[in-house]
Design a protein around this nucleic acid. Sequence first.
DNA 1: CATTTGATGTTCT
DNA 2: GAACATCAAATGC
Length: 202
Amino acid sequence: MSNPKLSPSFYQRQDVTSIAQELIGKVLCTQIDNDPLTSGIITETEAYCGRGDKACHANNDTRTDRTETMYQAGGISYIYLCYGIHHLFNVVTNVEDKADAILIRAIEPLDGKNKMLQRRGKQDVNPSLTAGPGRLTQALGITTSFDGTALTDNSIWIEDWEIGFSAPSLVATERVGVDYAGEDAKLPWRFYPQESKWVSQK
DNA sequence: CATTTGATGTTCT
DNA sequence: GAACATCAAATGC
């Protein structure tokens, strides 16, 4: 309860890759409708930059109905539907008109594990519960209806528990599933702690 | 084990 | 109509 939510000033800095690395170890929380609170430690992120990154939906300052959310000031959610099935959760960063975002790809469950199991239709808590961008959103109850929600709100937010991984050996690798982006697909903008098992496969 | 395929809907050409 | 920041189940070794 006493852990502070990250404030807009955290998200509105210019360097999206720095923020992506700092988000590792923070705690993503959701409290949807009247369901129990669910939360987990962020273990995997990917940075997307709206300028000079072909893998980003809003590359080259292209504005569409879908990407308009990313052009808002940092500190809100950007949630969109992928492959018609999966709701992918991103954190919008940078200031207004700078379309940067960070995809949250995996978490390690903390609170509300039973609720997550119920939402996912699973029996056991293991990495297949929340390791993967489509999985964690389902476990946390995140849908596109929360697109554009402020992360200072009481539905979705991120707290700083000052967890700090025992050996914060952060690994930077190529992003997943963005081969279509040519040269930009090779940018090492995917981050995760080497010792964590709660990381998506690939 | 590895690899393939079906589900599913929004966006953009 | 094709592509897509994916997952799970089915098939082939």
